[in-house]
Amino acid sequence: MRILFALSGFHRYDRGAEVALLSVASELARTGDEVTVCGSGTERSDTPYTFRHLPAIGREKFEKFPALPGFRNETQWEDATFAARLAMSGEAGRYDATVTCGFPYANMALRRGRKAGAKHIFVTQNGDWPAFSDKSEYRLFSCDGLVCTNPSYYARNKKRWPAALVPNGIDLTRFGPDAAAGRAMRERLGLPADKPIVLMVSAFIETKRVLDGMRAIAELDNAVLVVAGDGPLRGKGDALAAEILPDRYHRVSLPATGMPDLYRAADAFLHMSINESFGNVFLEAWASGLPVVAEDSVLTRWILGDKQYLCDTTKRDELVATLRNSLSSGARAGKSGIERFTWPVIAAQYRSFIEQVIAGSARPDGAAGPFANAADAA
Rank of each mutant, 00 (worst) to 15 (best):
residue 5 F to L: 00
residue 5 F to P: 09
residue 11 H to F: 15
residue 11 H to G: 11
residue 14 D to Q: 15
residue 16 G to E: 04
residue 19 V to H: 09
residue 22 L to P: 05
residue 23 S to H: 10
residue 23 S to E: 07
residue 26 S to W: 05
residue 27 E to N: 07
residue 30 R to Y: 10
residue 34 E to H: 01
residue 36 T to S: 14
residue 40 S to A: 14
residue 40 S to Y: 00
residue 43 E to T: 13
residue 44 R to D: 04
residue 44 R to P: 01
residue 44 R to C: 08
residue 45 S to Y: 09
residue 47 T to N: 14
residue 47 T to E: 15
residue 47 T to V: 15
residue 56 A to Q: 00
residue 60 E to N: 15
residue 61 K to P: 09
residue 65 F to H: 13
residue 78 E to A: 13
residue 81 T to W: 06
residue 93 G to W: 10
residue 97 A to W: 11
residue 99 V to E: 05
residue 100 T to C: 07
residue 101 C to D: 03
residue 103 F to S: 08
residue 110 L to D: 05
residue 115 K to S: 04
residue 124 T to K: 02
residue 127 G to S: 05
residue 129 W to I: 14
residue 130 P to Q: 02
residue 130 P to I: 07
residue 132 F to D: 09
residue 136 S to N: 12
residue 141 F to C: 13
residue 150 N to A: 12
residue 151 P to M: 12
residue 154 Y to R: 07
residue 158 K to T: 11
residue 159 K to N: 14
residue 164 A to I: 06
residue 170 I to G: 10
residue 171 D to M: 12
residue 176 G to L: 02
residue 176 G to D: 01
residue 177 P to F: 09
residue 177 P to V: 12
residue 178 D to C: 02
residue 184 A to E: 11
residue 185 M to S: 07
residue 185 M to K: 12
residue 190 G to V: 06
residue 195 K to A: 12
residue 198 V to Y: 07
residue 199 L to V: 08
residue 199 L to C: 12
residue 200 M to P: 11
residue 209 R to F: 09
residue 210 V to E: 06
residue 215 R to N: 11
residue 216 A to C: 09
residue 217 I to H: 00
residue 218 A to D: 01
residue 218 A to M: 04
residue 219 E to A: 05
residue 220 L to H: 10
residue 221 D to Y: 02
residue 222 N to H: 13
residue 222 N to T: 15
residue 228 A to V: 08
residue 234 R to F: 11
residue 238 D to V: 11
residue 241 A to S: 11
residue 242 A to W: 01
residue 243 E to C: 11
residue 243 E to M: 04
residue 246 P to G: 01
residue 250 H to D: 03
residue 252 V to A: 00
residue 254 L to G: 08
residue 256 A to R: 15
residue 265 A to C: 06
residue 268 A to C: 01
residue 277 S to P: 00
residue 278 F to V: 07
residue 280 N to C: 00
residue 281 V to H: 10
residue 281 V to P: 03
residue 287 A to P: 05
residue 291 P to N: 01
residue 292 V to R: 05
residue 295 E to R: 05
residue 298 V to L: 14
residue 299 L to T: 03
residue 304 L to F: 08
residue 305 G to I: 02
residue 309 Y to R: 08
residue 311 C to I: 03
residue 311 C to F: 05
residue 316 R to N: 01
residue 317 D to S: 15
residue 320 V to T: 13
residue 322 T to V: 09
residue 326 S to P: 02
residue 327 L to F: 07
residue 328 S to N: 04
residue 328 S to I: 03
residue 329 S to A: 14
residue 331 A to F: 04
residue 341 F to T: 07
residue 341 F to C: 08
residue 345 V to Y: 12
residue 348 A to K: 06
residue 351 R to C: 01
residue 352 S to I: 03
residue 352 S to K: 13
residue 355 E to I: 10
residue 357 V to T: 06
residue 357 V to D: 02
residue 358 I to E: 08
residue 359 A to V: 00
residue 361 S to F: 12
residue 362 A to H: 08
residue 363 R to E: 10
residue 366 G to R: 05
residue 367 A to N: 09
residue 370 P to S: 14
residue 371 F to W: 04
residue 377 A to S: 14
residue 377 A to M: 11
